[in-house]
Design a protein around this nucleic acid. Structure first.
Length: 434
RNA sequence: GGGCCCGUAGUGUAGCCUGGUUAACACGUCGCCCUGUCACGGCGAAGAUCGCCAGUUCAAAUCUGGUCGGGCCCGCCA
């Protein structure tokens, strides 16, 4: 007999079906008993008045079972129908006590994050915990499909590199045969080179690595970077406007395709009408005026400032997103183009969402001589960037791009307390397994 | 790199400040009862040498020192 999925039970009323999955829960109420079965599609229910006939009290939770029975309409069942049990067969039984329950809500379980991560694969059986990655998959899918429609080419660049991109961030050194190499902290150079290669518009979904010795609820040392880079732009606004359209589509898709997951996680989608922009200089003024911050020594935004600017965006612009633009030159890497009319400030921006930085981007320098000059100005040696610089000798169009932290975006959409909850197998300062 | 905090049954917590004889509660587990549960309900039972090592004391989960493990914030970043 063919397998029927839990979700599809209502389409088989009156038929005999076969279900395969895990025993989510067994509720025995004297003479009537319910077996809740979970598979990849969801949870369904089988019922029987003869629990002893099927030996239900000997079946352990999370056993893998095969259920056969007839589907009958039942208004008291959640799906409006349920399986009248004819047989139950244990295919695989657990050989150890379960570390914690699968069938309860995350809130009720009140598990410490460490417990969840130590038993990651098992924890994902919990529908709420598992839902996070169904949502994340939808975020990544939307990113890819939206950009493909906009004429972007999906690329995959090496994660093993010879030199760092941005200087500031710490790199993980690795031994590459007789050479010293590093794990890539960003696909930055490669995506720019591929714009120059003539693809004009490229995007990449890939892990990047940061050897930063931090331990906070918003940092992991390996994260999924959603990058795009586009040529022939008039200004960085072409980059941010595209992201705004991407985000609108994302909200729409999540609403349509992840309604159940969002409900389970009690997540509220943001409404995006138009995302406000705030020049860095004006952001400081807002912080000084409305939040009583001492901004005299503020050259970059600290986490508190990011939360305050989001609060401001909500109050003044009724937006949960805000673009902070024109970050000062000293805070941005050498490839960032500055404003010729106001050269202290760059065409670099961040997108803040619900108090957290989720995107960084900019218009880049495309002129070869200017780029070499700026590398020198940063105290770096252009010769060590020859592999990157070469294409700029042969004419690269004005271009810009950005990177979105996929886990952070997931975290903020779902209101998760810790970014690690949005990473399947997070790598942090002390965690290397599972 | 700097600062603050936490380790107690399978899980999550209380007790610790103010040391004292059976270490408490909830969920789970096990047993019995229950014909419509979906956080099922009722009754009962088992389960913890209080992270580890040392010290103080008649007496340590509780006080002190060390050690191991974990969390959060800042710097930096997505």
């Amino acid at each position: 007999m063919e397998r029927t999925l839990a979700r599809d039970l209502p389409q088989h009323i009156g038929e005999r079906v076969r279900l395969l999955g895990w025993v989510h829960h067994i509720r025995q109420l004297g003479k009537i008993s319910f077996v809740l079965l979970r598979d990849r599609s969801g949870v369904t229910q089988a019922v029987t008045g003869e629990p002893e006939r099927f030996g239900l009290d000997r079946i352990e939770r999370e056993s893998i079972v095969e259920l056969v029975g007839r589907v009958k309409p039942e208004p008291q069942a959640r799906q409006g129908c349920e399986l009248e049990l004819e047989s139950i067969r244990v295919l695989v039984a657990p050989v150890a006590p379960l570390p914690f329950e699968v069938s309860r809500s995350k809130k009720k379980l009140n598990l410490k994050l460490d417990m969840i991560l130590d038993h990651r694969a098992f924890a994902l059986r919990n529908p709420e915990i598992g839902a996070v990655f169904r949502v994340q998959a939808e975020i990544v899918r939307t990113f890819q499909e939206f950009l493909r429609r906009e004429g972007f080419l999906e690329v995959h660049t090496s994660k093993i590199i010879a030199a760092g991109t941005e200087g500031g961030t710490a790199l993980f050194p690795i031994q590459y045969f007789e050479q010293k190499a590093y794990l890539a902290q960003s696909p930055q150079f490669y995506k720019q080179m591929l714009v120059g290669a003539g693809y004009e518009r490229v995007f990449e979904v890939g892990f990047v690595y940061r050897a930063e010795d931090h331990a906070t609820s918003r940092h992991i040392n390996e994260y999924l970077s959603l990058d795009y880079e586009m040529g022939f732009i008039d200004s960085f606004l072409d980059v941010t406007r595209l992201e705004e359209r991407l985000l609108k589509e994302l909200v729409k898709n999540l609403g349509e395709n992840c309604a159940e997951e969002l409900k389970l996680l009690e997540a509220r989608l943001p409404e995006i009408s138009s995302i406000p922009y705030l020049h860095f200089r004006d952001a400081l003024e807002v912080l000084r005026r409305d939040y009583n911050r001492d901004v005299s020594k503020m050259h970059d935004l600290d986490p508190e400032a990011e939360r305050q600017l989001c609060d401001y965006a909500q109050k003044v612009h009724n937006s949960e997103f805000i673009f902070i633009t024109h970050y000062p030159r000293r805070t941005r890497p050498f490839y960032t183009l500055w404003d010729p009319d106001d050269p202290e400030y760059t065409f670099g921006f961040d997108l803040l969402f619900r108090g957290l930085e989720v995107t960084t981007g900019s218009q880049r320098i495309h002129d070869y001589n200017l780029l070499v000059e700026n590398i020198r100005r940063f105290g770096l040696n252009p010769e060590s960037f020859e592999f990157y610089l070469e294409i700029f000798k042969y004419a690269v169009p004005p271009h810009g791009g950005l990177a979105i932290g996929a886990e952070r975006l997931t975290q903020q959409f779902l209101g998760l307390a810790n970014v690690r909850e949005a990473s399947l197998f997070p790598r942090d300062r002390f965690r290397l397994t599972p």
